[in-house]
Design a protein around this nucleic acid. Structure first.
Lengths: 163, 163
DNA sequence: TAGAAGTAATTCAACTTTCAACTACCTCGC
DNA sequence: GCGAGGTAGTTGAAAGTTGAATTACTTCTA
């Protein structure tokens, strides 16, 4: 495995400050996400499904190509397909053929779906405030935006993996 | 559904600054976690499994009661049971009966398991630096710790759900 | 010291997610 | 206008996750 070209790099372990920042962030985030999910459970929605419906409800005509929806809601195409089947059964969405591209489909939100998300939205927003935003000052919000903008912009395919 | 006691609360939607902070944080976090997971994939480890093994390797005797391990690695007991079965098959851990409490078991890390985590750890730490810590100043780290300490401490069972 | 109540861990069944394979269609170059 | 290669979306099987039920204890209380 080791070739002569390889330099055995000494791992730079995290110092206490780094460790604290990293673990506090990761653990609090995990727990907060769990809480948000459980706040939505009463509406038979997971965060992921909420996100899908929210994006769809914002789209012109509450209608979006499957791929585009998958993209902006950050789920895989396959996962979206499966979830759509479930939400279709619940009567929240339906599929509509795309005349311009006969391979494609639109995901369309039904009135029932719109009502469902409209019902859940205030709770979810309150939930985001309670669990997260209320603990940030305006300055914190701006600082956080900056930090995570940097994090995200550096994220495309450096390091180890293919794309 | 609406009773006379209930006040129809106007939802306080997020203003642009709040929205930006929330979405940037959530989206960047999601993508970063994905990246960290894929950085670990070469070691046949998910972040969750890494966390379990890391906690175990830090424990005295590399040995911990199942419940305790589940707790500190933040996975459910049931999930830990299932993962342990997989990791046991990989030869990374084994179960050991607990003589003091015959209901209980210890999760014990094998040498092979220790080597596996030792191999993965430098990459993972590098990964955490590359993907996250490198984008934070020292002040950012401290600020972030403060923010997420607040978030976490307010998280226990307010709002909507049981506990 | 019996037996009620509580706890540790696993199991089962239902559900969700992933990954790779597949179908059907589009696009481009020649 | 044909065929190679690309893209849209679905599917099916395998793997992972959840939550409730279950088993096998321990602990507490009267």
């Amino acid at each position: 495995m080791a070739t002569s070209r390889e330099v055995k790099k000494e791992a730079r372990w995290l110092n206490p400050r780094e460790m604290k920042a990293w673990r506090t962030y990761i653990i609090a985030s995990r727990r907060m996400l769990e809480a948000l999910d459980s706040d939505l459970a009463g509406y038979e929605l997971s965060m992921a499904d909420y996100e899908v419906l929210a994006q769809l409800s914002d789209a012109p005509g509450r209608k979006l190509r499957m791929s585009e929806l998958a993209e902006i809601a950050m789920v895989s195409k396959s996962r979206l397909s499966h979830r759509m089947k479930v939400m279709e059964k619940a009567g929240w969405v339906r599929r509509e053929e795309c005349p311009q591209d006969r391979r494609g489909f639109f995901a369309v939100m039904t009135d029932k779906g719109f009502k469902a998300i409209e019902r859940a939205a205030p709770t979810h927003v309150e939930s985001v405030r309670n669990r997260f935003l209320d603990h940030l000052t305006v300055k914190d919000q701006e600082e956080l935006s900056k930090i995570f903008d940097r994090v995200q912009s550096q994220l495309r395919g450096q390091f180890i993996n293919e794309e």
